[in-house]
């Protein structure tokens, strides 16, 4: 189990006043919603970019729910991340259509271009590379999503150009 109440790193959103204000506002807005924990965590992930152990502890304390419950939810869903991520996100769809369409070749190529395997962030903190489930654009397979932008029918030789957006 994580211990969060003591020694919160000074770089943690909970310790940064502006970020803390955002967190407080999210908590305030959703306080009375039934099933609020999911909604709050989703909002935190969207607005802060991740849900650190200290943030989980903060949510548990403010919402008066056991920390285990918050931690359990965070660890269950693949959308929640617990540390800061790269400035950009590159996602390779590994759904059926994209897999059949050659997504693994794109991943090989991306390892070469960005120097990291899926699940990791580049050393310069620019890009986090991920594998994701079907993004629902199968007729465009294989699909690569850079930040919010979807690229379909990506060929390995076109990939470099697409990845450039995630490199600065």
């Amino acid at each position: 189990m994580i211990n969060v109440q003591d020694n919160i790193p000074t770089t943690d959103p909970v310790a940064i006043p502006e970020k803390r204000a955002v967190i407080d506002q999210i908590l305030e807005e959703n306080r009375n919603l039934p099933g609020s924990v999911m909604v709050i965590l989703n909002e935190l992930q969207a607005k802060i970019g991740f849900v650190s152990p200290a943030m989980q502890g903060y949510v548990a304390k403010k919402m008066r729910v056991p920390l285990q419950q918050v931690h359990g939810v965070v660890s269950f869903y693949s959308f929640f991340t617990t540390e800061a991520r790269g400035k950009h996100t590159v996602k390779f769809c590994m759904g059926t259509a994209c897999y059949v369409g050659g997504a693994d070749q794109l991943i090989e190529k991306s390892k070469q271009v960005l120097g990291v395997a899926p699940g990791h962030t580049t050393a310069d903190g620019m890009a986090t590379v991920e594998i994701c489930r079907c993004v629902g654009a199968c007729s465009q397979a294989p699909v690569v999503v850079v930040d919010e932008e979807m690229h379909g029918r990506v060929r390995p030789n076109k990939l470099q150009q697409i990845l450039r957006k995630a490199q600065s």
Binding site: G95, T96, A97, R133, C134, G136, A137, C138
Partner: peptide
């Protein structure tokens, strides 16, 4: 929740 890979009818 349309989770099946290869499905986007609901979307």
């Amino acid at each position: 929740d349309e989770g099946d890979p290869g499905a986007f009818m609901n979307r």
